[in-house]
Simulated scan of single mutants.
Amino acid sequence: MKIIRAKEFKAQRAWGALDIANMNGITTRLHWTDEPYKWHINDGEEVFVVLDGCVEMRYKEQGLEKSTLLNVGDIFYASVGTEHVAHPQGEARILVIEVEGSV
């Protein structure tokens, strides 16, 4: 059993993570960041939940770049092949559920 106080978590570097669970190859991790990630495509599907802060999520659909602002409680689902990059607006804490070892 674990109790995690997400608002209290702060990593030593941007996108540092606290491993919460690995359920049959699907990982759940809490990330802290204050810097953008990099454009990437995950090895599988990804669920991205903003727990604290605000994140601009940029993504590509049919080669066109789009973006949306994600606030606390918002969820971004990246299906297989979705190219995307997260740009936090200040500090953010994000719950990410994805295939183990994914980018």
Rank of each mutant, 00 (worst) to 15 (best):
K2W: 11
K2R: 15
K2P: 08
I4M: 07
I4H: 14
A6S: 11
A6W: 13
K10N: 12
K10Y: 07
K10V: 11
A11P: 08
R13A: 11
W15L: 11
W15A: 10
W15F: 14
D19P: 07
A21I: 03
M23C: 13
M23E: 14
M23F: 13
N24Y: 10
G25Q: 06
G25F: 02
I26L: 10
I26A: 13
T27N: 08
T27D: 08
T28Q: 14
L30M: 02
H31I: 06
H31K: 02
W32T: 07
E35D: 09
Y37I: 07
K38R: 10
K38L: 15
K38E: 07
W39N: 11
E45D: 10
E45S: 07
E46I: 00
F48Q: 02
V49W: 05
V49K: 02
V50W: 00
L51Q: 06
D52S: 11
D52N: 14
G53V: 05
V55H: 06
E56P: 01
E56K: 14
M57V: 08
Y59G: 01
K60P: 00
E61F: 08
Q62T: 15
G63P: 01
L64F: 14
E65W: 05
K66S: 15
K66T: 02
T68E: 12
L69R: 15
N71V: 15
N71A: 08
G73H: 06
D74Q: 09
I75Q: 15
F76R: 06
F76G: 00
F76W: 04
A78S: 04
S79Y: 08
V80K: 14
G81Q: 03
T82L: 06
E83M: 10
V85K: 04
A86D: 05
A86P: 06
P88W: 05
G90D: 03
A92P: 03
R93N: 09
R93C: 04
I94K: 00
L95R: 00
L95V: 00
E98R: 11
V99C: 09
G101Q: 05
S102N: 07
V103W: 15
V103Y: 12
